[in-house]
């Protein structure tokens, strides 16, 4: 790790003040991603501002029937919270598909949103990477890119966002509450992460000196018909090759509303409003699901090693929507995929 200073923020205002006063400082809560990257010398903050003791651990019901969750709630507490299990089981399912029990105990909700890509070149400081070292080039483009993005890529970067939780949050139209020097603001989860474009070193739209204080779930949780499916290289404790969050509002077999988000395919959780719109009013059948998959994957492009992801994503979308329509019980434990 680099030689850094440590401060403990006393409240959110203090954290914002410390950020403003210390260029190169980073916030730390669970630390599961940041410490890892610091040990790799990928992240070299001048100062760590410890926000882990700030009072951002509440679950609060919102006026419109939603839920506001403090940014420091550990991932495991979120996944196992009775309100989440009952009203937003898609979110619980996605969180429990990620990392390990230990890491979920440590990682915070806000930190999960901030986790950085697993691209091997991003991690290896001996290789070029535009995300780590802007302008140095992208080694993945013509390198080992089996794990890389098929949607929303750029000539500068084909890295993916590794979060499972964010995929479910994207499908649920979650909001991100942010505080900063200019006050508080709220942005949609789907607008929180960026596509790489020509500035892949910027992962999110969180501004300089800003801090995530909460996420907010709208009232609709799709608790009846949902599914989170994660495909990976071993049966647990691995990052997604493809993950799909699907949620349906059904009237009999007719789809009133569909939500569909993918992980492992892009620099951000991938939503396709077009695909969702195409499902609206249709019967919940494999044909319609397949058509939605085609729409979502329009424009998907592969490099040398990740072409399989396009077909895998198509099949995973169909399967996940089918599971959601059938109200298939979700389990990370029973590894047979229903």
């Amino acid at each position: 790790m680099n030689n850094f200073q440590y401060s403990r923020a006393t409240d959110v205002t203090d954290a914002i003040r410390l950020l403003a006063a210390n260029p190169g400082a980073r916030l730390i809560a669970g630390g599961t991603n940041l410490i890892d990257l610091m040990k790799e010398n990928v992240e070299r903050p001048s100062r760590l501002i410890d926000i882990s003791r700030l009072p951002l651990r509440k679950f609060e019901e919102t006026a419109d029937g939603g839920l506001r969750i403090g940014a420091l709630v550990p991932n495991s507490d979120l996944a196992y919270h009775p309100l989440i299990e009952q009203r937003y089981p898609l979110l619980a399912s996605a969180i429990l598909a990620g990392a390990s029990a230990q890491l979920r105990n440590m990682a915070s909700v806000g930190g999960n949103l901030m986790q950085r890509t697993r691209c091997a070149y991003f991690y290896d400081t001996a290789t070029p990477c535009n995300k780590r070292n802007p302008g140095s080039g992208c080694s993945a483009l013509d390198g080992l890119n089996r794990n890389h993005a098929i949607l929303g890529t750029s000539a500068s970067c084909i890295a993916t966002n590794p979060s499972d939780m964010s995929v479910a949050l994207a499908a649920l139209n979650a909001l991100v509450h942010i505080a900063g020097p200019a006050g508080e603001r709220v942005i949609a989860l789907t607008d929180f992460h960026r596509l790489p474009g020509d500035a892949p070193h910027v992962d999110t739209n969180l501004g300089a000196g800003e801090i995530i204080t909460a996420i907010e779930l709208p009232s609709r949780g799709f608790a009846q018909n949902y599914s989170y499916l994660k495909i990976r290289d071993r049966l647990s404790y691995a990052f997604a090759l493809i993950s799909v969050a699907a949620a349906l509002d059904l009237n009999g077999n007719a789809i009133r509303e569909a939500r569909l988000a993918l992980g492992g395919v892009a620099h951000k959780p991938w939503r396709s409003l077009e695909a969702e719109a195409a499902l609206r009013g249709k019967a919940a059948t494999p044909d319609h699901f397949s058509h939605a998959a085609d729409l979502l994957l329009q424009g998907a492009t592969a490099r040398a090693h990740n072409g399989f992801k396009i077909e895998l994503a198509r099949r995973a979308i169909v399967r996940t929507l089918t599971q959601a329509a059938d109200a298939t019980p979700q389990s990370q434990s029973h590894k047979k995929i229903a």
């Binding site: 440590y6 630390g31 599961t32 410490i35 882990s52 390990s100 890491l103 440590m106």
Partner: peptide, 10 residues
């Protein structure tokens, strides 16, 4: 928890 990703000071 994983103690390797935990700063003692925290």
């Amino acid at each position: 928890v994983n103690s390797c990703l935990t700063l003692a000071v925290m």
